[in-house]
């Protein structure tokens, strides 16, 4: 305290000297008065601080908010070594972020809160749009969801396979067919993923498309990984073009039969009992759709749309 005071007064005296140099009008009496007033003011301020500290000590709150020894030790350690991630100092190095890390391109995964499906974080927003039945195809998907929700709640409660609806695993030949009806499907050598663009996608040739169809539909037991096919971003607007350009055996002559085959396959996954009830018309979703809107066997166009919608499996 004494040291501090002399320091303070030392400084003050210097200040006073400066003023004197500048003004040259102060008499020694005035100078003394200024010093006296300064002294009084300073004394008062110091007294205030003393009272504050005394009060804090008496009330037991002095230094109560200080960091404890344990935390201080952790803090020191984390700054000297790399044992603790909790305290890091800001880095400002070119090419690195504030944490001193190289900006990563690491993939993060997340689980969709809507369908519990595991997917890459970077694809979450487009997935969620479809999954929640919104966006461009919202009304159709939403109406399908409403149509199906009642039944699902009532009779699928205990069904452990419920989730399988949401994991599209096109193991069945018919399902692959359905996908290939809608998308380009050429498997990239680089990513080993199927192209999800439309069948007129300019990146691949018709020859490539034909080759992949031949490959996928003739080889048995070829399992396409769930994550590989990006059904979320795919657009179904071009299915008609596919039929026209590729002369696909099944697609060139879309008949109610071919549709129901596809549908019944997917319904097998859902529920056997249901399946037996709706042998011909496919799964319950399509049933309600058909019954509700057309009261009977669908029109050609209608079948196509339900079929294509089915490939999403967002019901």
């Amino acid at each position: 305290m004494d040291n501090m005071l002399t320091d303070l007064f030392g400084e003050l005296e210097e200040d006073d000297d400066d003023e004197e140099d500048n003004n040259d009008v102060q008499t020694p009496v005035e100078d003394d008065m200024i010093t006296d007033i300064m002294d009084v003011l300073l004394d008062e301020i110091i007294l205030g601080i003393s009272f504050e500290v005394h009060r804090a000590c008496k009330l037991g709150i002095f230094l109560l908010d200080e960091m404890d020894e344990e935390s201080q030790k952790q803090y020191d350690m984390s700054n000297n070594g790399d044992c603790h991630v909790k305290f890091t100092e800001i880095k400002d190095i070119r090419g690195l972020d504030v944490f001193g890390q190289v900006p990563m391109k690491k993939q993060f995964d997340c689980v969709c809160p809507n369908c519990q499906r595991n997917l890459a974080a970077s694809r979450f927003a487009p997935h969620l749009e479809k999954c929640m039945g919104m966006g461009r195809n919202s009304s159709r998907i939403a109406s399908r969801r409403i149509a199906s929700s009642g039944k699902r709640d009532s009779d699928n409660e205990s069904d452990g396979n419920e989730d399988s609806d949401w994991h599209y695993t096109p193991e069945k030949k018919e399902e692959r067919k359905a996908i290939l009806l809608q998308t380009c499907g050429v498997i990239s050598e680089h990513t080993k993923k199927m192209c999800t663009r439309s069948v007129r996608c300019p990146q691949h040739t018709d020859d490539q498309r034909r080759a992949v169809r031949l490959y996928l539909l003739t080889q048995q037991g070829m399992v396409v990984d769930d994550d590989v096919i990006d059904i979320d971003t795919y657009d179904d607007g071009d299915s008609q073009t596919l039929r026209d350009t590729l002369h696909w055996e099944a697609a060139s002559n879309p008949s109610p039969d071919s549709t129901s085959t596809t549908n019944s396959t997917s319904s097998k996954k859902r529920k056997p009992s249901k399946h037996s009830k709706n042998k011909k018309k496919g799964n319950h979703i399509n049933q309600s759709h058909v019954n509700g809107n057309h009261s009977g066997q669908g029109h050609d166009n209608h079948d196509r749309s339900t079929n294509s919608a089915n490939t999403y499996n967002f019901d």
Binding site: S71, Y75, E89, I90, D97, F99, F108, S122, F124, H127
Partner: peptide
């Protein structure tokens, strides 16, 4: 205690698309 040059409170956010 958080020192002035701590990164606390700073965190990147993944772009979800």
């Amino acid at each position: 205690k958080v020192s002035g040059n701590s990164t606390i409170g700073l965190r990147g956010l993944i772009n979800l698309g």
